[in-house]
Design a protein around this nucleic acid. Sequence first.
RNA 1: GGCCCAUUCGUCUAUCGGUUAGGACGUCAGAUUUUCAUUCUGAAAAGAGGAGUUCGACUCUCCUAUGGGCUACCA
Length: 484
Amino acid sequence: MSNIRTRFAPSPTGFMHIGNLRTALYAYLFAKKSKGQFILRIEDTDQERLVGDAVKAIYSTLKLANLQHDEGPDVGGPCGPYTQSERKDIYKKYANELLDTSHAYYCFCSKERLDSLVDETGNRRYDKHCRYLTREEIEQKLASGIPYVIRQSVPSEGVTAFSDLVYGEISIENRELHDNILLKSDGFPTYNFANVVDDHLMKITHVFRGMEYLSSTPNYNLLYEAFGWTIPLYVHLPHIMRDKRSKLSKRHGDANFEDFLEKGFLPEAILNYVALLGWNPKSEVEKFSLTELVDAFDVSGISKSSAVFDEVKLRWLNALYIKELPPQRFHSLAAPYYRAISTPVEVNLLSALIQTRISALSDIPDMVGFVDSFDGYSLEMFDSKDAKSSALLAKELLPDVIEALESLECWSNEALFGALERLAELRSIKKKQLLWIVRIAVTGRLSTPGGASEMCLLVGKELALERLRKSLSRLRAAQPVESE
RNA sequence: GGCCCAUUCGUCUAUCGGUUAGGACGUCAGAUUUUCAUUCUGAAAAGAGGAGUUCGACUCUCCUAUGGGCUACCA
């Protein structure tokens, strides 16, 4: 194959679905791997389903994902226009050609007649009524202005087979095929026609698309043959599922790229994760940058069965990406989440602490919640089997802690830790016991973005001492509970 | 209903006739530690079912079951 060209052809009907993103990714990877072109085409032939900003969402997603197209409506190219609604004349011309060669025919059937064709299972199958109209009848109906569509004329015998790069040999009996509508009465083509014309005209060599097109591909091949065009290679992709039963759906609210960004996932992580859904790199490597993906990608690694989207694993990958962010970069990503905090804290320190401890940016509010809300935490938190500490021990030790920290000259992590370490030694207890207590007493949280000394450092001397005292008085006020 | 496709641990997957069926996420259990978290080690965890073909099937064939897709003047 001399010059590989792939395309991503979304229809602007809403947000960018995560499954679409993966299709775009694979098409991009495949093209780039062989130094070919990746083309963006907007399939806006259904005027009723168009959504206002959907095209914008497509551009922004591709940009954020760093999937740069070589040709497209916004960047132009030799095969434009790249928006189907601007190509009506082209489809018309090719439809006429099909009409001339009897591979297509005018159909004047009304909606009512079509509806009367439903069978006992509730399905409708066009009976090819207009296929047998005489030339005179056609001329007459055309002349009297009856609305019409143009339908593909499929042979009623034989089989149409093709070889998919993922699914292998697929063959379907022609009698199962429908006389699809190619051109709608509003003059717009259907997907069934436009994709063939455009893929040919845009010199697409490999068609990447969802496996829902597997059974209509024979129709398209018949069209290519009717035109005498070369049939592209097909790469049909398995679906990404929400669970075993249902596809990931826009309806569910969390299946599009924007939503994941909002949840605090990094584009690189999402892309990396999605690449692995339904494709295996034939190695144990799981973390890939975009360029590494280009290098590693191979259609032979694409699987045939659908894959369930697992946000838990995405979180794991995302955590990896977050950890390796330059500190300044992480801080600027995290900063918006700090706006809600009213207690003054050293945010740079906060960032440094949480960067290694979160899997998504949206974990931040939970993680830093203790900064503003402290009162009323459960004193049972002092009881830890693991740290061998208890509320009783806390009540006993806190006065000493307060005293030791009050007199601390230098409020640094080293000084704090040293002081607490000495105190533990003095009271001959394990430092882990003490540190557990101090950490809880200062934060009121079981899980914190750092250890005891770091938490003291973060909230500052004044607030740390205030909280230690508060915790102590709460412990003193509490009725001693009999050990159960 | 018809046609097409799929089916390995909970999830993503490896295996392309001969393996103790491997890895990753998650889970659980230990260990380590400048405290939380990390890290490390270990464990539990799978070939939908049934017939064939074969010396031998997760791998090939067929049937069944289950799931998905298509069956629109949607893509």
